[in-house]
Computed example of a mutant assay.
Amino acid sequence: MFLALEQVLNAGEVAALREAAAALDFGDGRATAGRYVREIKANDQARPSPELEAVQAKVSAALMAHPVFASAARPRAMTKLIVSRYREGQTYGMHVDDALMQGVRTDLSFTLFLNDPESYEGGALIVADTVEERAFKLAAGDLILYPSTTLHRVEPVRSGTRLCVVGWVQSWVRSVEQREILFDLDRAIADIFAREGKTGLFDTLCKTRSNLIRMWAA
């Protein structure tokens, strides 16, 4: 399931984070690359610092508080977030994310965009599935969530700077199909409650959702 979430951060939060991120100390992104992708990875990543930790904490809190992100990902654990910068000419070739990062199984990947798409040329996130390649270049504050099992790449930046926060989630529910069923149930339950309140059907759907989570959580 591919999911684009709008305004995970509002305009004020994005501006503050963009300013904080721009002041971070960046190093060569290849330092965190595996042996097979070092030659195709050309970007900058923020080095560890108290200032980076503040950015990571702000974004993590926003994600965990976002109801749609929580419903789609059902996060059990999350890697440390990476502040990633692509300047003119930088790119990341086709690859799949490592299955394990920092002791976390990577079920879902996400990119949170920090600057407006009009401020840089190129730099789209391209995610491939069995049918086609999909391009994502979202507004500042928006996030794309997608399965970590997919091949993906970042197109070369032709001008400007692409600034993002990226991370990976280990879900309580490992199966993509089961997560989608639960996500659909969440939406159905919310819709029924909004239209009819707490009815017998609402209670039955809540029971079904809870029992499915008991069966599938790991």
Rank of each mutant, 00 (worst) to 15 (best):
N211K: 12
L182F: 10
L17P: 01
V14C: 01
S175A: 15
A77V: 08
S109W: 14
R187T: 10
K41Q: 03
H95W: 05
G122S: 11
L3R: 12
I40F: 12
Q178I: 13
A33L: 04
R38K: 11
Q56G: 03
Q7P: 01
D116C: 07
T199Q: 00
A20W: 00
A217H: 01
D97N: 12
A140M: 06
N211S: 09
R214T: 12
T91V: 14
R187L: 07
L5W: 11
Y120K: 02
R85W: 06
I213H: 00
D44N: 08
M94L: 11
V173E: 00
R87G: 10
F183A: 09
H66Y: 09
S159N: 10
P147M: 01
S210W: 09
Q7E: 06
M101L: 15
T106E: 09
V14S: 02
G122Y: 13
I40V: 14
R179H: 09
H66V: 10
L5I: 13
G197T: 03
D186H: 12
K41R: 11
S175Y: 14
R30I: 02
P75W: 13
R87F: 08
A140G: 07
I144V: 15
V165E: 00
G29N: 05
G12F: 03
P48E: 08
T91A: 15
T79S: 09
N43F: 13
D44T: 03
A77E: 06
K80R: 08
T130F: 14
L145M: 03
V68H: 10
Q7M: 07
R105I: 05
I40D: 04
A135G: 00
E177I: 12
M64N: 05
A54C: 00
E53R: 14
A22G: 14
S148G: 13
P75I: 12
S60M: 13
A124N: 06
L138H: 06
F110E: 05
A4W: 05
E133Q: 15
S175V: 11
M101V: 14
A61P: 00
T79I: 13
L81N: 04
G200M: 13
R195P: 02
Y92K: 03
A16R: 15
R179D: 02
L100C: 09
L151I: 07
K207G: 01
E39A: 08
E177M: 10
E180L: 13
